[in-house]
């Protein structure tokens, strides 16, 4: 069972208190009459599935109830950082392939 740091509670809490909620930083396009079918299909169905660091949404459903974002490494399961919904992805959580080779984790 992983420990996940809830950025609202400021505590590491056990994984079973949380619920995964899909990819983060997906913007709902709108207004409806200005969105193309392709754009809407991409919003509904197209997601990246990278090996490595992903930004995803979690909800502390059995805790403070808040949604938040997390950067997690899909290889090691390590949570690089968690941050509140609405905040930008912290630069230090960039995918490793964008970092200089000697600093990659």
């Amino acid at each position: 069972m992983l420990l996940i740091r809830c950025p609202w509670c400021g505590m590491d809490r056990p994984e079973i208190e949380f619920r995964h909620a899909g990819a983060a930083h997906i913007t709902r396009p709108g207004p409806p009459d200005r969105v193309s079918d392709e754009e809407w299909a991409a919003f509904l169905y197209l997601r990246d599935n990278p090996k490595g660091r992903v930004a995803e949404r979690w909800r502390h459903v059995h805790g403070c109830g808040r949604f938040f974002n997390a950067v997690r490494d899909t290889v090691t399961d390590v949570f690089v950082v968690t941050y509140r919904a609405g905040e930008p992805r912290p630069p230090e959580s960039a995918p490793p392939e964008t970092l200089p080779p000697e600093t990659r984790p």
Binding site: C9, R13, I16, E17, G63, C64, G65
Partner: peptide
Amino acid sequence: PGMATRSL
């Protein structure tokens, strides 16, 4: 003591 939270 004093802490309150939801959990499981």
